[in-house]
Amino acid sequence: MNELFADLTPERLRDLLHQMLLIRAFEESAEQLYLQGLIHGTMHLSIGQEGSAVGACAALRPTDYILSTHRGHGHCIAKGARADQMMAEFFGKESGYCRGRGGSMHMADVDTGNLGANGIVAGGVPMAAGVGLSIQMQRQDRVVLVFFGDGASNEGAFHESLNLAAIWNLPVIYFCENNQYAMSMSIARASKVDRISDRAAGYGMAGVTVDGNDLVAVYRETHAAAQRARGGGGPTLIEARTYRWKGHSKSDKQRYRTKEEVKEWQDRDPIARLVRHLIEAGLLSEAGLGDMQARVDAEMAAAIEFAKNSVEPDPATILEGVYA
């Protein structure tokens, strides 16, 4: 196994880079469209965090489940969703993943195992125990990975879920994207514990902290956790340290951090890092990168066209879908 790239083949690595580029392009487009007034509501961008989303999902199988967060576009794409149906959801169109009913904060693609983003901080964390139990009781060869933020680790439900998953030995990967802030609240102010992964010890499960901007490192740790879960070894808490480059949402004046701090983390761009490693290893050329970016741009342009040309939900259907 190559130290630098774990067991990832060159082709797979290029595919993962493509995913990261697509996530970034998707979010940059979404932000533009929002500024143009073409999409409404709010959105939470994960720009700068692509390494953790893609690295984590790369270690999962298509049949594995994820539960995502309000900052979930990256998770959704990394688990295999299509940019066009995601964009249509953003536009509130019938062809969107949630028929225009959910929007950014509820993006889900059940067919690729994504059980949904979440508007509630730590909303997916208790459910993960239920999904894990369901997998266990049905004797399935699956795992569930639940994404959540540093801020979510201070909700009571987080602690209840970890404890239960530990005592029942459930195949759950608790994947904390520690991007240093919960809105304006830094993790340093919100917790006395340096490493969120240390909390695993309190529940008798494995815990590890990893550089979330190092896609391969994230992949490696998540892969190990998935193997443990599949082998009956129970849950793992992974803390991926990363950073959100943009404001929390569309209404954030960012008075709680400095420009220097943001710049420092931008210099640790997970995309630039993988590009550099691939080029140095001779697995990618500048021209190859250019082609890849061009494909991403074309995919985004097509996604936006698809979204714009899709129809609005029929108002006559407004009462549909509440009950099965």
């Binding site: 509130g92 225009g100 009913r101 509820h106 939900p313 407004i318 879908g321 509440v322």
Partner: peptide
């Protein structure tokens, strides 16, 4: 309000 969760789509939200 209609007996539904609040929809994201602008027009559905308005009608709710």
């Amino acid at each position: 309000g209609l007996d539904i969760p609040v929809p994201y789509n602008r027009e559905l939200e308005r009608r709710m």
